[in-house]
Amino acid sequence: MKVIRSQKAYATKDGAGVRINRIAGFDGKSLDPYLMIDELKSDDESDYIGGFPPHPHRGIETFTYIRKGGFEHQDQMGNKKAIRSGDVQWMSTGRGVVHSEMPLVDEDNGMHGFQIWLNMPAKEKMRPPRYKDSIDTGVPMLVNSEQVELRALAGAWSMDSQVIEGVIQGLAGDGAIADVILPKNAKAVLDVSKHGKVLVYIHSGQLADSAFAAGNLLEVSPSEPLKLAAAESGLGVLVLAGQPINEEIAHMGPFVMNTQEQLREALRDYQLGNFGDIV
């Protein structure tokens, strides 16, 4: 694979003091169609117990994936779901969502999960919100001859000529997300040629014959097959792909629109209660 650039996640806090590692790209270019990748990984309950109390969004899609532990999701659409290990959840917020994500404590395994933001095209930012999760269906998985697991979280994927459809379809920017887990010294090849942007976030282990380890994001060329090889420590990566939207971004906290006036309108609508309330 051809690495175009690399970026290291930085430590920060969000919600009610939740410690996370973040990759941000609100310039509308570096991650497009993605905006942000937040990783929550801790065995210390105090790092995440405050959770994410009720808050609004407009103009983005949020994609949550839990590897260990869990969160209880609630929103003004009436959804109340326990998102646990192995589950994914997608909210296309459109014109407005109010939701909360509060931790379900797992004293044995701690917490490891992701929330990923995708930008929505201008023409779709004010449509009604949508919600979907994998609780009833589970997440499809491919396993190759070297026991590499590809968990198809969203979109469609091809690994070593095997094809699989993810549990969630229809992400903004034709987004596709997979969790690929490689045992030590194992290899896998993914076909990413249909995408305009391909990002690889290392969440565990290390790439073979490189210094890239957990916490690094790589942008790779979609013109070449994505060849993954694990070091002695094994390797776990999120692969995020899609088509850049290439639109101007105006960002303020939980709102991502195209102009400053649209941001002011979003704030006014939220303050007036037009987003609704969690019941």
Rank of each mutant, 00 (worst) to 15 (best):
E107D: 15
H57C: 15
R67S: 05
E61T: 01
S100V: 13
Y48Q: 07
R84L: 08
V88M: 08
R95H: 10
E39V: 03
M91D: 02
S42L: 04
Y65F: 10
D106N: 04
L35F: 12
V88S: 12
E61S: 10
W90H: 03
E72L: 03
L35H: 13
I60A: 13
T93S: 15
K41G: 00
M77N: 04
D43H: 12
R67Y: 06
D106W: 12
K29V: 14
S92P: 00
P103L: 02
I83G: 09
R58C: 01
G94M: 07
G28N: 00
G51E: 12
K41R: 13
I66C: 12
F26M: 13
D44V: 15
S92W: 15
M102T: 14
Q89F: 10
Q76C: 03
E101D: 12
R95W: 09
E39L: 02
I49A: 02
V88E: 15
F26S: 14
L40Q: 10
Y65G: 03
W90E: 06
D87F: 01
G86Q: 13
Q89I: 04
F71E: 08
G78E: 08
Y34P: 05
Q89Y: 14
R58H: 07
A82H: 11
I83M: 11
L35N: 00
E72I: 13
H99A: 03
L35M: 03
G96W: 11
K80G: 02
W90T: 07
H55V: 06
E107A: 15
H55S: 05
E61K: 06
E45K: 15
M102Y: 09
E61H: 10
S46K: 07
G86R: 14
I60P: 06
D47H: 10
I37A: 04
G51L: 05
S85L: 03
G28H: 05
F52A: 10
G78I: 11
S42T: 14
P103G: 06
G25S: 09
S46R: 14
K29C: 13
D75E: 07
R58L: 13
G50T: 07
K41S: 10
I37N: 02
